[in-house]
Amino acid sequence: MTETIVFYLFSFIIIVSALAVVTLRNIFHCALFLILCLFCVAGLYVLLYADFIAVIQVLLYVGAVSILIIFAIMLTARLAGRQVVMQNEQTFIGAFLALILMGGILWSLTGTFIRQSAEVPPPKSLATIGRLLMTDYVLPFELVSVLLLAALIGAIVIARREGT
């Protein structure tokens, strides 16, 4: 019962703040609503017994990516604030396509049977995830660290000023 209430509360906040992210005119407010949305997604992960993912979500999205986005808004704010028109002329066709996409996914969900497991998830996921990352999934783990290093160097090379 409590789980249901919490789920619907989080879902409501997620959907409302996501709509605010895509429709508000002030881009700084959009960023703040994005942070709220990501935080509530972390709450949903807790509901799904994914404690480590929830912590990672708060650290990486709410902490790092949001700060990065706010930095970028600040660096471009002089023009972003003056820019009144935030939507392009594709609003109606965009809404139409998004509704078709949502309806299609929901319609295909109702006709799909997914075999669910009745097992109870173990209370702590961190030890198992760490073991799996170091044994079965060590190659993608290392690849992803190389990807992060490449993204770091690439971002520095792209964003630095010429000649410095």
């Binding site: 959907i15 996501a18 820019q83 939507q87 809404a95 396509l97 996409l101």
Partner: peptide
């Protein structure tokens, strides 16, 4: 949530 994000990607200018 995916559809809302899709709408934002299509219609935003910034």
């Amino acid at each position: 949530l995916f559809s809302i994000g899709f709408y934002g990607v299509i219609t935003r200018r910034n």
